[in-house]
Design a protein around this nucleic acid. Structure first.
Lengths: 332, 332
DNA sequence: CTGTTAGCGCTTTCAT
DNA sequence: ATGAAAGCGCTAACAG
């Protein structure tokens, strides 16, 4: 593998000149530039990214820490981040924290030790305090799906409370009065906020929140399934199940059917996130859109702008959930 | 950030000794080891991975190139790889090729330039010849979902032809005689093989393959939907739709229902891959299991063994698809 | 605009 | 078992 030395020798210029054209510096005469490029071409020179990183203290890699790498939600997020980064010649180093505090901290250390220039984080177990502290370190961080007021510039989030509110409001407007709620794990901020929105909508309609018709799941499909079993066992009547995400909604749909009820006639269902397969469930799932792709893209752009000093792009931190009406809710 | 120099000074030993304990070398006295560890502890020393890479010519990063980063299939694969790698202190650098030849080649160069110690590849546009050539380079590669005889040690694959055969055989055994087939894009090897298996089963049952009841999709949900429209327009009768993957099957199910037919009574459906949401479709999808997690894990282990010389693990290259019977097929 | 010169932090012979 | 010293390939002041 040819090095910068050989290039400089062949081109008859100094190391620095080669380095300069490599880094697109100004103040290089067209002539030397041509000579250098020709030499590079002839030698099939490829820069050694590790050496560059060591000398410049930039790895051009961005760490991405998520709860899980699979699942419809994270996949879209990572896909979106990688696309944006790659256009800029940067790359994504991904790792998962599995919603376990210890493991998530390890993930962060892992990425920092890897000299990532910045880290994009979408996890739940680490406290705001920890993340605020982390943000004071030398590795810039951006946080997805969470607003931490003290470092709000680094946060990209949607109004989960509003989303929860709008979802439940919609279902109430269709005439439903007895709502079951299948929640995400309440140690997660978004699960909490969505539940709060749900309660606000209930309140506004003078309906009361029924503890018996509440089930705390884990955001995974199976817990939607189990949740329905649990709810039905209470013998309480409900005409709709409000689910805190689409995965649980899909599980809930299965559960409802396993009890020989049909959707939406016997039980309406609403989800949250609008993951791509919500559209392929039967009936198609009414849900709240979560613009994860746009948010992920924004977070990447923020890094390009703030860490790599790329020309300004407009960066928007707050996103809005939107109701997507499909066929899983019936009028009463 | 403390460096190895400060550690060596504080411990009162040489650079090399510090390096030795860092790398778990033998021939280090227990005493110096203790001194060094104490010094590291005191200084909060963290090794600089970039410097290590430059000096050792190992980046401890493994490139992963896939067609797409989202979708149920790739998500599970990447998740599985990352878990295995991280246990060994290695990390995954991911990138997508979008099934476009130019883009996939760029992806490979990108990863090589990033000094990845090895690359895991699951793509479709690059030819066997190209990959064989690539395998002769200095960066080891492993190939998922494809058998290239010349480099079969580096390949991890299932018998797609057998899978296609078994799927269709099963559906024939349920009494179906008029089968529509929604294929993956035929430039992809797996799509081809699955189709061949389908034809073999047909043949064996003395049924003929009907060109009119064939539709070439793109492995994405929407093309399953579109495929059904197309098939129905032919006015040919069919009692079952054999789909080359679950995503198209989910689209096909939607299509069938949009034409006011019910599943499986009016039209049975079978998929391929057994992605996690196949279980949450309605009716639950009968499909062929594709052990992508195990295969991904194996590929990571192969790298640990062959590139990093980790203690032998048993490595299996060939996997077998298995029929998963659920509710999307009816007896005739 | 171009060249010289130190490193970046660590690994790895080679002696001892 | 330990240490000295020479890089790994490149960047970034600084001087000219």
């Amino acid at each position: 593998m040819a090095t910068i030395y050989e290039v400089s020798a062949l081109a008859g210029v100094s190391l620095s000149s080669v380095s300069r054209v490599l880094n697109d510096h100004e103040h290089v005469s067209e002539k030397t530039k041509q000579k250098v490029m020709a030499a590079m071409e002839e030698l099939g020179y490829r820069p050694n990214s590790v050496a560059r990183s060591l000398a410049s203290n930039r790895s051009n890699s961005i760490g991405v820490l998520v709860s899980e790498l699979h699942g419809p939600f994270y996949g879209e997020m990572i896909s979106s981040i990688e696309m944006e980064l790659r256009k800029a010649g940067k790359h994504a180093v991904v790792t998962a924290g599995h919603s376990v505090e210890k493991s998530e901290k390890e993930g962060i250390n892992f990425l920092i030790d890897r000299n990532c220039d910045a880290i994009i984080i979408l996890i739940d177990s680490l406290s705001n305090e920890f993340l605020i502290e982390l943000s004071k370190g030398s590795t810039p961080i951006v946080i997805l799906n969470r607003l931490i007021p003290e470092i709000k510039e680094n946060c990209f989030y949607i109004d989960n409370e509003l989303g929860g509110y709008l979802a439940t409001k919609h279902i109430i407007e269709q005439g439903h009065k007895e709502l079951a709620y299948i929640s995400g794990p309440l140690f997660k901020q978004d699960a909490n906020e969505r539940l709060n929105g749900h309660k606000r909508a209930l309140n506004e309609a003078n309906l009361k929140f029924d503890e018996e018709l509440f089930y705390e799941g884990d955001f995974l499909t199976t817990s939607g399934r189990v949740g329905i079993d649990h709810l039905i066992k209470t013998k309480r009547k409900f005409t709709a199940a409000v689910c805190a995400n689409d995965e649980m909604a899909s599980g809930a749909m299965k559960g409802v059917r396993d009890h020989n009820m049909s959707i939406p006639q016997d039980c309406s269902v609403i989800g949250f996130d609008n993951v791509y397969f919500a559209n392929y469930l039967h009936p198609e799932l009414t849900t709240m859109n979560y613009p994860i792709k746009e948010m992920a893209k924004m977070s990447a752009q923020w890094i390009l702008k703030n860490v790599y000093k790329r020309p300004d792009v407009f960066v928007n931190n707050k996103f809005t959930p939107e109701l997507i009406v499909r066929d899983s809710i019936t009028k009463i």
